[in-house]
Nucleic acid binder design. Structure first.
Length: 458
RNA sequence: GGAGGAGUGGCCGAGUGGUUUAUGGCGGCGGUCUUGAAAACCGUUGAGCUGCAAGGCUCCGGGGGUUCGAAUCCCUCCUCCUCCGCCA
């Protein structure tokens, strides 16, 4: 949700800034009216309160002096009525205000290109070439069962469709990738590991924007306001909800593994075969809280870091990097916000996209000149959503990357690799790695054997 | 699940209807002293909204109520602590 300060100061620019997004122009205009009325009303109500406070103090003084205070008390009572009326109206305004703010989409960064569809995406940088074969590679949903490491049928028996049992080497690979990513980001990139609850409450989901829009995509626990977390972003970003972070505390960098649960209502059918669009998958998420003004810089620094081959990791000679690229997703593609809705639309050779965000105050970040001076960052929930967006923003929005994809870089979780395996015709013979060119230490040897051996036969 | 206790500013902790514009301490910042530091002493130090400003309003776990006036009284919810019960 856009910060109120931002809406107010850039109000005239919004139609331009939101040109690629879908929003209700009438609602936006209404927002402007409400804002004016709200401030007018607030001023007058405050004045009434000030008068009442003065009178009350006078009553106290007179009573102490054993004088008659009836006149003051009656006037104060009358003022109280006016105050209540004004406050009631303010509440109404606030309600309508919030409802409109909920519907306004985020503002793409100026560097986001305009365009009609994904063909307008701009590739900023790419590595490697997609592998070519002298045979027809099998899709992962055939190869996996054939190898006995992916079992869709039994998962359907145990639970239902769009769940998968990973077993043997696939399970090991998943675990290894999780460990690898957590190790990488904690040991080399300065992130702190957290293991948050996998169940989150409604307030947290409001904080990161899944509610109220995407309730249908969430699994809710019966008769509670608890939900299965759709991404670690929710619990991790909400760690600092309602907190004021001092500038010297920043940046705060977290990485977290959680399983992710997504109902993905209405997404059945196409492109959901195999490991694509599972109700449950594993992911390592990165969240960074930064000051508003250094958000973009932090983002770029992480993105650049992803470009660099990493000398600190043991090179594996036969390791083959996945083709990757950095790109700018155009505004049109930003629309399917949340819950991986846009993931399936990424061009095959553009595996990693760099998403740039808001100019100025990042999404949901109320900070501007004043707060900057104060050196604090407001993080709060329901009213304005989690200001932590300021930080999450620096990362772009990871949930729009291929599962587990991470800004600037590395596959963040197990299915990421398997997913890529499907998107790259190499199938499961693909190694994790990217520019790092090194598979996770544990899974490496296994990757060298099982899938490869099968490939020659396949 | 039951009973009892507690939630106050970055932290600790006073405050049970009216100069509380929320004592005091710690921590932070500035200063005096010192070659420098420590100690001591002095000063200063919460946040949000609104306003060009002066200022005004709001905030003592959340919400609601009583009152001219609520950190303080009432209702309700949440969280934590102690004890009991239950427990894959």
């Amino acid at each position: 949700m856009l910060a109120r300060d931002f809406l107010r100061t850039r109000f005239a620019d919004l139609p331009h800034l939101l040109r690629n997004r879908t929003y209700d122009a009438g609602a936006l205009a209404r927002w402007g009216e409400l804002d004016a009325e709200r401030r007018r009303l607030l001023t007058s109500v405050d004045a009434l309160k000030a008068e009442r406070n003065t009178l009350s103090a006078e009553v106290g003084r007179k009573k102490k002096a054993k004088e008659d205070a009836t006149a003051e008390m009656e006037r104060a009572r009358a003022l109280g009525g006016e105050v209540s009326a004004g406050e009631k109206r303010l509440e109404e305004i606030e309600g309508e205000f919030f409802a409109i703010e909920q519907t306004l989409p985020n503002v793409p960064d100026e560097s986001v290109p305009d365009g009609e569809d994904e063909t307008g995406n701009v590739v900023l940088k790419s590595w490697g070439e997609p592998a070519r074969f002298d045979f027809a590679p099998k899709p992962h949903f055939e190869l996996g069962p054939a190898l006995g490491i992916l079992d869709f049928e039994r998962a359907a028996k145990v639970t239902g469709s769009r769940f998968t049992v990973l077993s043997g080497e696939a399970s090991l690979l998943s675990r290894a990738l999780i460990a690898f990513m957590l190790d990488l980001h904690t040991r080399e990139h300065g992130y702190r590991e957290v293991l948050p609850p996998f169940i989150v409450n409604a307030a947290s989901l409001f904080g990161t924007g899944q509610l109220p829009k995407f309730e249908a995509d969430l699994f809710r626990l019966k008769d509670t306001d608890w939900y299965l977390a759709p991404t670690a972003e929710v619990p991790v970003t909400n760690l600092h909800r309602d907190e004021v972070l001092r500038e010297e505390q920043l940046p705060i960098s977290y990485c977290a593994y959680t399983p992710c649960f997504r109902a993905e209502a209405g997404a059945a059918g196409k492109d959901t075969r195999g490991l694509i669009r599972q109700h449950q998958f594993d992911k390592v998420e990165l969240v960074k809280f930064t000051a508003a003004e250094s958000s973009a810089e932090a983002h770029d620094a992480d993105a650049r870091r992803g470009d660099r081959p990493r000398a600190t990791r043991p090179a594996v000679p036969e390791g083959r990097p996945l083709p990757r690229g950095h790109g700018l997703l155009l505004g049109e593609d930003l629309r399917p916000r949340g819950l991986a809705a846009g993931a399936g639309r990424l061009p095959r050779d553009l595996l990693l996209l760099r998403l740039r965000r808001l100019p100025g105050p990042p999404r949901g970040h109320p900070g501007e000149a004043d707060r900057r001076r104060e050196g604090t960052q407001r993080v709060r929930p329901h009213a304005q959503r989690v200001g932590a967006r300021g930080g999450a923003d620096a990362r772009g929005d990871p949930r729009e990357l291929p599962a587990g994809g991470r800004l600037g870089g590395d596959p963040g979780g197990a299915p990421a690799l398997l997913w890529r395996a499907r998107r790259d015709p190499e199938g499961l013979s693909v190694r994790p790695g990217g520019p790092d060119e090194a598979p996770p230490p544990v899974a490496g040897p296994l990757l060298n054997s099982a899938p490869r051996g099968k490939r020659t036969g396949g």
